[in-house]
Design a protein around this nucleic acid. Structure first.
Lengths: 335, 335
DNA sequence: ATGTATCACTTAAACGATTACGCGAAGGAG
DNA sequence: CTCCTTCGCGTAATCGTTTAAGTGATACAT
């Protein structure tokens, strides 16, 4: 591998001069700089990130913590898009990304130790068990951190607009004349709580009262539970005209239950969902959902983190909210 | 950050001794070793991967090249599982992974240069444009390389068993009495060619002849094109009893075309697919497919690469084939 | 002529680790 | 008692880069 030394030798200058020329420092003569740059190019010189990182204490590497709570499975759809966002934004700024885990060599350690080991410049917490003390340790460290969809004290976070999304969905349904709305929600995480808040707030806005038995807890991404619950809802003496589903996969279960009952969407009953991943667009009927801009969630997170890394003093603690958009399908009928 | 020097000072030994103690070298007294290990532990010492890499020229980092040919989108389902496989296997061996791209700092370079910049120990080529000269450059370099689903000269590759998978699917359909089989395949890549070879081979085995017009090129992961082609197939005077689809998403298009035609699966027509991602299991009817073990594709690739990195001389150039399995659904009827 | 500023470079230390080599002491063999 | 091993540890170089401080030359003002 050709190093700065080789160039120095061949150019008859010191390594310091080469380094400065390559880094665009001002105290290098124009002619010398040209010679160095040209030779570097000719020899196919490539800087050594390792050596640079050792000296400067900046790795241009950002850590991504993603612990799948459900251990693999469908949740990846959300994550892979977020990851793509992080990745592309990071690349744009010359950063690479490293997955944070608990191994170094053959030992087990904490997430923070792994970060120190690799010398990452900062961390995006994309998904994690927020009660895990190791996550807390990481959050309370002196490393720059940005979290996605979770708020920590004194830490920047990027949130999807679960509350507003729900509000918009209710408004949309209401605008089509729906007043009898049922909701199946996911597990009671922070995300779900926000969505429910938005739901209730918007219902109130339209004077809609939702009976207890129309508010049901399902399981995210699980068609089976949703199918069962939908069946129960449809069997009630007083039946809703519109059902809210927690996500696209759940809707598949709901759709089947509706079909089983011999009903047609949106003629006999309406449905709205959440997420609106590409999958939902290619099924028929196409679900009307709130589309989360998950990629943007990733790009913003990376952007905020890099800002924090590069301008540590001007950091403003903020909670950025990434708004989604209503994605009309064909599952909401007029009343 | 506490370094080897701090430990050395506090223990009254040299840094060499500390290093050797921490690395389990033999020429350290038992008592000294204990003292060092204990103190390291007490001070929360963590090795600095950067410094180590600089000195040893081993980063314990493996590069992953993934260039999405379709630029984002659905193909990620396949990739995210492969990636998970690579990631978990790498972690198990104490390696981290780095995505290979074309940026270093704010400059554009080649994949190989990026690898050199980061000093990765090897590369898994998970997906790429194999005609790209930069990919060729990478493959012909002196870095350890493993490719997934593509063969290069003198390079280890891990292949999914497209040929065998297809054979098994044909055998299955044939065992249910099907003799009139149509196939919609994806773009004519290496993967597709293998599948077609398997398809024809197995057809021959059962004396099945497939008319030209029943062999159709569609687009991977694209319901629309598949819907159109399926419609055409169904409109032919002589209609197949079973249609092969290139993947789960395509099948959604096919399913819709079948429904449009007023036909029922599997009563009126049968269908088989490929991939068998979780999605296909939650739709109804459940598609009968060949399930690729994509995660294993990733773990094997990582495993082979690490083997190559750690034992460069005992490397056997091989083509490992990861077998999938038939996943019965409800889309193939008896004839 | 003297002092001073600027320019273009060099020197040398440092980042945190690894490792070839050397060296003194202890112990055993002869 | 001398010689040779073995053991346990230290010395010092090194990986490739950055950067504070220094240096000599030139130019300019006074």
């Amino acid at each position: 591998m050709v190093s700065i030394k080789d160039i120095a030798k061949r150019c008859g200058v010191s390594t310091a001069t080469v380094s400065k020329a390559l880094n665009g420092q001002p105290d290098i003569g124009e002619e010398t700089r040209e010679r160095i740059l040209h030779l570097a190019d000719e020899l196919g010189y490539m800087a050594n990130a390792t050596a640079r990182a050792l000296k400067t204490n900046r790795s241009y590497n950002i850590g991504v913590l993603f612990v799948d709570p459900m251990h693999g499975g469908l949740a990846h759809e959300f994550f892979s898009t977020v990851l793509d966002g992080i990745r592309s934004e990071a690349e744009k700024h010359g950063y690479d990304i490293t997955f944070i885990n608990r191994n170094v060599g053959s030992r087990q350690t904490s997430y923070l130790q792994h970060c120190r080991y690799r010398g990452v410049d900062g961390v995006v917490i994309a998904s994690a068990d927020f009660n895990d003390p190791m996550v807390t340790e990481l959050v309370q460290s002196d490393l720059p951190v940005v979290t996605i969809d979770h708020i920590f004290n004194n830490r920047i976070s990027v949130m999807s607009d679960n509350m507003q999304g729900m509000e918009e969905l209710v408004r949309y349904a209401a605008s089509k004349g729906h007043r009898k709305i049922a909701i199946i929600h996911g597990e009671l995480t922070g995300v779900t709580r926000n969505r429910l808040t938005g739901f209730h707030r918007a219902c109130e806005e339209f004077g809609i009262t939702v009976p207890e038995e129309w508010i049901r807890e399902g399981v995210f991404h699980d068609p089976a539970s949703c199918r069962r619950i939908t069946k129960e809802l449809l069997a009630m003496p007083e039946r809703p005209t519109c059902i809210f589903f927690p996500d696209d996969y759940s809707w598949i279960g709901g759709m089947n239950a509706i079909r089983d009952a011999g009903l047609k969407v949106p003629r006999d009953i309406s449905a709205v969902g959440y997420d609106g991943i590409p999958l939902s667009r290619i099924m028929s009927p196409v679900l009307t959902t709130w589309r989360q801009d998950t990629e943007k969630l990733g790009t913003i997170a990376a952007d905020r983190l890099i800002e924090q890394i590069e301008h540590p003093r001007t950091v403003i603690l903020d909670r950025e909210i990434v708004t989604g958009s209503l994605q009309e399908g064909g599952t909401v009928g007029e009343i």
